Simulated scan of single mutants.
Amino acid sequence: MKKFRSNGKLFLIGEYVVMDGAKAFALPTKYGQCLFVSQLSEQSNVIYWTAKKHDDSLWFEVKFELSSLEILETSHQKLSESLQSILRQAKQLNPSFFESNLAYNCETKLEYPQQWGLGSSSTLIDLISKWIEIDPFELNKMTFNTSGYDIACAHNNQPILYSNQPIVEVEKLELNWNFIDDLYFVYLNQKQDTQAVVGNHYKNKPKDLELINELSNLVIEATKVKTLHDFEAIMDEYQDKLAVFMNQPKVKDLYFSDYTGSVKSLGAWGGDFVLVTKRKGFEDYFKQKGYNIIVPFREMIL
């Protein structure tokens, strides 16, 4: 049996403008997804695929004909068709892999609750790429066509500075912050469709090159901060500038306007997790508002 593993992702700062070539500061998570592959002795030209959630319960299962990737049996048609589409694009990148008269048993396993939004799609792209020996960034372009920061997180075991124009560039970062224990992730009790949010609130707006450069510079500054005060100032300034451009309220203004620390949206505004900076009694503050999943930075980030 072969085992492949890919990290999940959280987008600290650089959201939206990364689509236009700006720098992005992203965080690979300790939680990810695994793929276990066994080549079976039978010469049946099939792939048996089982996807499991973090608690070992069944997500879905499907049986493909290997060479055509036709769905032979499935417990969930829509999810199986999505996987089928990814595998068919992977076949374009490595056709010979699917031409042998072999049989495979594949099982994926999430390491976190699915609703956390840490990258079940990006980790799947990366896992399939590792198994089939293709470029995950190319497969991502052919399928979900995200900025690619999530693929870079899947591949790297420390925080990264990422850009994708004119080519993909990934710089590994050492965070020598003395305030890491003042940083926490709070789950907002909702799964957000990142691609839809980007499409609705950023993609269709005229490009502001001056703003893109300003925000990209703030991202770079964020990688060099020494104090919690400076970190908070950059997070707040980034969100203030972006909120004006997008004509969208910040998540702090919507839900936590009386909180004295910073609240930073991660990735798509309004969904999944936010990063908060610690203040006295902060856990009680968020729990009283119904947000009970509060994860320390050290427990979440590689």
Rank of each mutant, 00 (worst) to 15 (best):
H229Y: 06
V198L: 15
K224N: 06
P166K: 09
M142P: 01
P136E: 08
T194D: 05
E138H: 07
E221Q: 12
A233E: 14
E138P: 03
T223C: 02
N156T: 14
I151T: 05
Q158D: 08
D135Y: 00
E138V: 12
K207T: 08
V168M: 09
E232W: 00
F179S: 10
N217G: 15
P206C: 13
L183Y: 00
L161N: 07
L215M: 13
L209K: 15
Q192S: 12
Y184P: 01
L183C: 08
G148W: 03
A154R: 07
N178Y: 01
V225P: 00
A233W: 04
D208E: 08
I220C: 12
I167L: 15
N156E: 09
N176Y: 08
Y202V: 14
I160E: 05
F179G: 09
I212M: 13
K172A: 06
L188W: 02
S129C: 08
Q195P: 08
E214K: 10
K205P: 05
S129W: 01
E174K: 12
D182T: 02
D181Q: 04
M142I: 05
V170I: 13
F144W: 07
N176M: 07
I132E: 02
K130P: 00
N145C: 05
I151L: 08
E210R: 14
A222F: 00
D182R: 00
L218A: 03
I212P: 03
C153R: 07
S163G: 11
A233C: 09
A154Y: 07
A233R: 06
L209D: 10
D181N: 12
N164L: 09
K172I: 07
I151Y: 06
E214P: 11
M235F: 10
I234H: 02
N164F: 12
V219L: 04
Q190D: 08
F185W: 00
F144I: 13
D230G: 06
T143D: 06
Q165W: 09
L218H: 03
W177T: 06
S129G: 04
D193A: 15
V225I: 02
N213E: 15
A222W: 00
A222E: 01
Q195I: 14
F231N: 00
E214L: 13
D135C: 06
K172W: 07
N156W: 08
K130N: 00
V168C: 11
V168G: 09
P206A: 12
K203Q: 14
K191E: 10
V198C: 15
D135T: 04
A154P: 10
E138W: 01
E171K: 08
K205R: 10
T143N: 05
L139E: 00
C153T: 09
H155G: 12
I132G: 05
L218N: 07
Y162D: 02
N164M: 09
D135M: 04
K207V: 13
Q190M: 13
H229C: 12
D230I: 02
I128D: 01
N204K: 13
H229L: 15
N204Q: 13
S129V: 09
